[in-house]
Write a protein that binds this DNA or RNA. Structure first.
Lengths: 214, 214
DNA sequence: CCAATAAATGAGTGTTCCTCACATTTATAA
DNA sequence: TTATAAATGTGAGGAACACTCATTTATTGG
């Protein structure tokens, strides 16, 4: 970690000028790419805004035209990652022919999520920071909720009427736990991490099975 | 959050002078109390080292005699909280007469942990920061491992030989998930948080039951 | 072509964490 | 007790950053 200088955080606007011209859009992309690379190399805490600007080939002032502060860059990267993940999940579980098939696909998603996180340092680092930025934390929760809803919607037809609310809570919780499990797994030694993910997948299958009649 | 200035983090020593004299020990306590209060009032990010020193009634230099940096204070508070929690857990599950009784006690611990976290702003805030400080993250993992081992040891007699390694992983994972579940529950609206904890407790019981013959 | 608007720029400002050379107090030895 | 060593106490100031803003340059639309 390390604690930040962010004082007037409630005062500062969350977004700045939206790039409308082509040139500006390209710059924003270059900034994100540069930030992403630097985070991969040194970790987000060690990344200096001047470095990001330098690598992106833009002056520091331009960077602040589009991002209100350093955290906003991490946020943007995190949001993009979440969007990609959500799409993967949505694609995987839409139109499932049966509950059993849904279970298998969700299982595969968890495994894939682990594999991706293992070799994407940026993801790792940003996930780490998730809990320290209030906006990111809120985003993370909304992300889990949205993913949970996807799973819920895909399976609710198989769940007893009386259990629906509890099943919805369970889906939400499991999505949040998937993040925890994967972060824990990549933080420990590889062999142990693999074992933890195996257990987590079993937990997911078992908990969903508790609601759906497989 | 906000990101910090911590550059030479690997260079800086993790501990400083250990207070041996009575006066020094009292000062360290006063610093921790002051930090704790300020975190409760404004959140750790907004706490300034000068404020901590001022409220503790010590000059800034003295503060740095005992804490190498700001994060170290949070770390110390977190460690103390973890120690208290671990003691509670250890007391609760030692000498359990049966697996069923152990399950009930663990269930109560989770509920108590939620209740405590709900009205201890310091705990909330520090837990938030957990993931952003590498040392704290490591401490958190070790804490989960230690707690997991406690549960494992208390119940291993009831588990089949072949399942022992998997059960150990599950205990570790569940301890880490308890933190996630509670943090999520206190972050959302109260009624939903309560529901989430109910589901989590069910998950814990169900997963442990999967290994022990109740 | 000429406003009006958007974008670009980078030296400088302000804030914060933390250091360090020196002063003072406490413990230990003679 | 007195001398010496060790531990503690101090706070002005250094250094590192994040971020600003007055000015200049480019783009758009009428």
């Amino acid at each position: 970690m390390t604690l930040p200088p962010k004082l007037p955080s409630s005062e500062r606007t969350l977004t700045r000028r939206q790039p409308t011209q082509k040139r500006a859009k390209e710059r924003v992309e270059r900034i994100l790419v540069a930030a992403s690379e630097l985070i991969a190399e040194t970790g987000s805490d060690a990344v200096r805004m001047t470095e990001v600007a330098a690598r992106a080939g833009v002056p520091i002032g331009s960077l602040y035209q589009y991002f209100p502060d350093k955290a906003a860059i991490l946020r943007m990267l995190a949001v993009r990652f979440m969007e990609r993940t959500r799409e993967t999940l949505a694609d995987a579980i839409k139109n499932v022919p049966s509950a059993a098939e849904a279970l298998e696909r969700i299982d595969a998603i968890v495994e894939g999520y682990y594999a991706t996180s293992l070799d994407e340092p940026v993801v790792r680092d940003i996930w780490s920071g998730t809990q320290s930025d209030k906006y990111l934390q809120a985003l993370d929760i909304e992300d889990s909720r949205a993913n949970g809803t996807l799973v819920f919607d895909a399976l609710k037809a198989y769940v007893k009427e009386d259990d629906l609310q509890r099943f919805e809570a369970a889906c939400f919780l499991l999505m949040q736990m998937a993040g925890t499990a994967v972060r824990l797994a990549i933080a420990v030694e590889r062999a142990e991490g693999d074992r933890l993910i195996v257990e987590f997948r079993r937990i997911v299958r078992s908990e969903i099975s508790a609601f759906v009649s497989v």
